[in-house]
Design a protein around this nucleic acid. Structure first.
Lengths: 214, 214
DNA sequence: AAAATTACTTAACACTGTTAATAAATAAAA
DNA sequence: TTTTATTTATTAACAGTGTTAAGTAATTTT
């Protein structure tokens, strides 16, 4: 009964093909401009065909969201080999920021937009966002490691992890939505510093804070 | 020549009327569901009439965005009377968080969505977001006050202000996009704590961090 | 009263996500 | 091998979106 398997394989291929087209449009033109019809045109199929493979548009959004987490995990995977937990925490933060700068559209889909997370809540309420949990677990372990070495002792591990995540996410988020751009230009006493280094600078200030607590 | 003034006044009234209808829909049904046609139906005018008073939809979005900043400034205004700068900083953070919890839709429009800021950049590139600058200035002054009392000395004021803003924004943002909800439920060792207190708890952890640096 | 300006509406364009009904291609059963 | 059944893809359509051009009604000005 290899026929069913072949069909299933073909189906997966087709799903991948759709996703590839969606990703192309998404990266070049953004999420809003990525319409079902455009994806269909890209793969030279009728728009309704897409609905035979993906439930709706948010389903595609969630698939791209997962793709984005693949990219992020790729960046983080090598950091597992950094022994010193505080060094790892620093590197994670910088890696996270760099990811947001390199892939702002993916970052938006993964952490700023509501749609994919709502899709998750509506259609897979049981598995509870495994990609996010994995990354957050890694962060918690790193925080625990830091605590073991005397950093921010007497602090709750989970709260500390959330604090760090919120910190870098706040930075990346305000950067992407161009909120920083507006306050950095005029309000700032220091001259217009390059946006990317601005993020890293503020993050360094945060690290400085943490380091003093040792 | 009171006629022209009367007309101008009427025009402003009409703009306010449109905005009121938009706000009503926006608060009850969210931004996406707030269409020009629905706003028009609400005020019992033709959809195209709205374009005689607002350039386009992002123009309305920006007007609501400003309205939101009015609400936030209202909350912050009383805090100016708090003498101790560190107490003020704490209160500002908690006020900011409470605002996000009370008005998630406004918060989204003000700090999460790209549309209003992009509108600003496109149509008023010279005035550079006065509402935001004012709030950020207040934050910087408070940070400066803290420094004068020995808190986080040797830290750059602007970076410290951005750090604090990013911190609370990260918290509120991840809360609103329901990212926290997903990691708090399963991944968390501690039992499902009420989301609102979670935000305040993490913020408190941040304050604890700052306090230790005195 | 006639002309000009202003205020508003109707109709339409070019899109969007999504579904029901239908045709074409393939597989299973006779 | 021919007929039936199933899968796969399509066309047409619904109900909506932001937005603009053209036309109408009301008001002011001449």
């Amino acid at each position: 009964m290899g026929i069913k398997e072949r069909k299933e394989r073909h189906r997966e291929d087709f799903k991948a093909k759709i996703l590839q087209a969606a990703k192309k449009l998404f990266v070049t033109e953004g999420y809003e401009a990525t319409s079902i019809r455009k994806i269909a045109a890209e793969i030279e199929f009728s728009p309704t065909t897409i609905y035979l493979y993906y439930k709706d548009k948010t389903d595609i959004a969630y698939a791209l969201h997962q793709e984005g987490f693949g990219l992020l995990r790729e960046r983080f995977s090598t950091l597992a080999y950094v022994d010193d937990p505080f060094e790892r925490l620093k590197a994670m933060g910088r890696g996270y920021i760099q990811f947001a700068v390199d892939h702002p559209d993916f970052y938006e889909l993964m952490f700023i937009m509501k749609e994919p997370m709502q899709y998750l809540q509506a259609h897979h309420p049981e598995e509870e966002w495994p990609e996010g949990e994995r990354v957050f677990d890694a962060l918690m372990q790193t925080v625990d490691g830091c605590k073991a070495r005397g950093y921010f002792s007497s602090m709750n591990t989970e709260e500390m992890a959330m604090l760090s995540w919120s910190m870098v996410h706040g930075l990346c988020s305000l950067h992407i939505t161009s909120h920083f751009k507006h306050i950095a230009e005029k309000c700032s006493g220091i001259e217009l510093v390059k946006q990317d280094t601005l993020l890293v600078n503020v993050f360094s200030a945060y690290l400085q804070l943490l380091e003093r607590l040792k």
